[in-house]
Amino acid sequence: MNPWYSVLISLFIVIGLVLIALIGVGSIGLNSLFGVYIPYVAFAVFIIGFIWRVVEWARAPVPFKIPTTGGQGKSLPWMKHEKLDSPFTTGQVIVRMLLEVFLFRSLFRNVKGELRGGPRLTFASSKWLWLFGILFHYSFLTIVLRHLRFFTEPVPQWVQLISSLDGFFEILVPTFFLTDAAFLLAATLLFLRRVVIPQVRYISLPNDYFPLLLILGIGISGILMRQVFHVDLEKVKELAIGLAAFSPTVPKELGSVFYVHLFLVSVLAAYIPWSKIMHAAGVFMSPTRNMANNNRAVRHINPWNYPVKVHTYEEYEDDFRAKMKEVGLPVDKE
């Protein structure tokens, strides 16, 4: 699909979603639909869908132990074993996985190959994707955790701590969160990267642009409602606590931009289980990363291992017995 078409169609869908919320709440007044029912349905789809997908993966067996080894395996006692990249024990696998999940270690390896005249290739470390990725994921996580202050009363201390650290510089009123800026920056960079690098543009699908633009929409609407439209956060909290307690009341005068934000979040939640964002769960189950390189020491069982037709030694000897005897090879049957 033409890349520009993919970008545009994703953009139109996100704009369409914004309009749906604006019209639905602003013109038709479907506040309960957008404030209660859609979020509930979306959240249910998210939870059930997420579990569904994970169960679907988990149901497929792992017939072979196929870790990708990234360093010296455990071998002779005096040979230095790379425990993280070639884990031998479950503990070492767990450490490898933790580093993968929390620090994106494989992405950190990234090396860019460049073609020069000759022809000649040069390689240079390239950490941009890793940096954008880390920035994006950690600011996203912080923002999600910060939002817990809307769902809890009293607000747990660690949530307050995150919020106050995040707003450390106390710029603007209300305080502008650092992670909001980091988040928008990272999402924009990830988007630009996709559009600018020719190879990445060539492989990108609407499924790649849409979630990024949707997430950008969520970020922008969130900042707008906080910094520009000054949505009443007490009322937001009233709705949020009601939703969490399953006895929602829809406060009046929440402002359309809040509903846009909430609707886009609902769409994202419902979209996640059917999208590539499931990599968040999938990374834990990847057999090339979550298995130990102890193949020859600990036998792995394939649950569907079945007998196959082989060419037995007896058949082989039958084929070649005379010749074998001629050259003095021992035979089992004279």
Partner: peptide, 19 residues
């Protein structure tokens, strides 16, 4: 039969690190 295969069909984000 292969979790690897099913998973690899589903979770690629097309980041292009492999390109």
């Amino acid at each position: 039969k292969f979790r690897s295969f099913r998973l690899f069909m589903d979770i690629c984000v097309r980041c292009g690190a492999c390109a």
